[in-house]
Design a protein around this nucleic acid. Structure first.
Lengths: 247, 247
DNA sequence: TCTATGTCAAGTATGATACAAGTAGGTCAT
DNA sequence: ATGACCTACTTGTATCATACTTGACATAGA
């Protein structure tokens, strides 16, 4: 007896190989349902079922009136194919948690005031864990008028960026190596003085005005930055390195 | 099969390459929308969509009645507007020196062999100083056949990239924080175990094949990385951070 | 249940055109 | 030389039209 062939599964499989082979570049658009139907000599409905199966796998996505396209994280593209730590955590089946250490309106610290010209800021201190292991301590300062509507529970549940009612633009950050303070050493369960990666970031709104200042501390033995550079700089030193003003 | 092409994306891509190739110098004006439309044989609307996409990337900007112009130095832009350390040194009137610590053909170290599949490599170890103060130790490994024509004197006098007779493409690097080894502590005149920034980089040729592997070590109290992100990531964590495999 | 065919609605890309508004450069009277 | 004015060209914005796409559904055959 001949095996019953489910055509749309066959087509889904064929498309899957072609997508994974990179035949349709990242972000590029697949042929239309009609064109695919013609190529495989099946109806549009069948092509659709195949594509919808691939969508369930997260391989492709569609927009009405536009077409089907290979699903990629567009952000990675524009940042030089950088992965976010959340994606890595999700991919490796590790459990990610956020714990709020502090949530208070405070007089603007001097270091923050250089970027945010307000007198009072909301200071949120959080600890991030992966599988229970602390891997990041983050402090975010945001102007009082922006933080007024935020609650401690919201901050614990959602990324900060999603909570703000302000369209964000670019950001600028520095990455340095420092010795772990006593408090951080305890948080990360490492000896005092261990190397930690410290990032200072200012995030701007769409108009370029700073709206968020944050400090990120990562234990050096657990974390590193990855940067893909599309072009090579005319320098042997890694791009972006600069000497710290020894002030 | 030819996949579908969204024309304005194609045009944006074409313009991006031309801008990054420096065809339109920084600050110079691009051809008018009408002229570009004629060149690509599309309507002004389509050209506009392409240009607006590039504007979203921060690559170009426009003024009404004036025209479109390259927003910033395109090479740096594509790297995230990073400055090189040489430029900073030159700007601050500091004297930069290179000192070659080692120059030898050696059996390929295991860590290097993962990227360069050759048995023998040229290993060059250098110390960089700014105003006499050591601020970087760099080790470069390059395949024997590329390093055969290099002399110790050349390496001391010129940046590595200028000496190689190979067109270079992109690079990938990691940035991490580690504790200074005994040797590095002595070089940088810091206590053993002080935090240092460590970069591992593989540089590819134009075809994407790795041709150089290098390690860069910087004392943490003297150096930091600066990254300007044109867009903000949907994550509070700095882009590119990843957890180190605790192997 | 899978497939083929058809139909309609809604969304998108593109083109053609028009007009408002800003800029650069020239002309001309003073 | 200077200021007023005009002109040509630019981007910004808004129409309308067309062709093509997905989304959703109905109907029918195997």
């Amino acid at each position: 007896m001949a095996d019953r062939v489910i055509r749309y599964r066959q087509i889904a499989s064929a498309l899957r190989s072609r997508i994974e082979a990179g035949e349709f570049g990242a972000g590029r658009v697949l042929p239309s349902e009609a064109a695919l139907g013609k190529e495989f000599e099946v109806s549009r409905v069948t092509v659709r079922k195949a594509l919808e199966a691939l969508r369930d796998e997260g391989l492709v996505a569609s927009r009405q009136g536009f077409g089907w396209f290979v699903a990629v994280d567009p952000l990675r593209q524009s940042l030089g194919r950088l992965g976010t730590i959340e994606a890595q955590l999700a991919a490796s089946d590790r459990v990610s948690e956020r714990h709020v250490l502090g949530f208070a309106f405070v007089p603007t610290p001097a270091a923050v005031k250089r970027h945010l010209d307000v007198d009072t800021v909301l200071e949120v201190r959080r600890l991030n864990r992966a599988d229970g292991q602390p891997f990041a301590r983050v402090t975010v300062w945001c102007p009082e008028h922006l933080g007024a509507e935020l609650s401690r529970a919201e901050v614990e549940a959602s990324p900060f960026y999603e909570l703000l009612d302000v369209p964000l633009g670019g950001a600028s950050q520095t990455i340095g190596a420092q010795a772990a303070s006593e408090a951080d050493a305890e948080l990360f369960d490492v000896p005092v003085g261990s190397p930690v990666l410290v990032c200072h970031r200012t995030t701007n709104d769409a108009a370029g005005q700073p709206v968020l200042v944050s400090e990120h501390v990562f234990p050096g033995h657990l974390t590193e930055f990855v940067v893909d550079l599309p072009h090579v700089a005319a320098s042997m030193a890694p791009s972006g390195l600069r000497l710290v003003d020894p002030a």
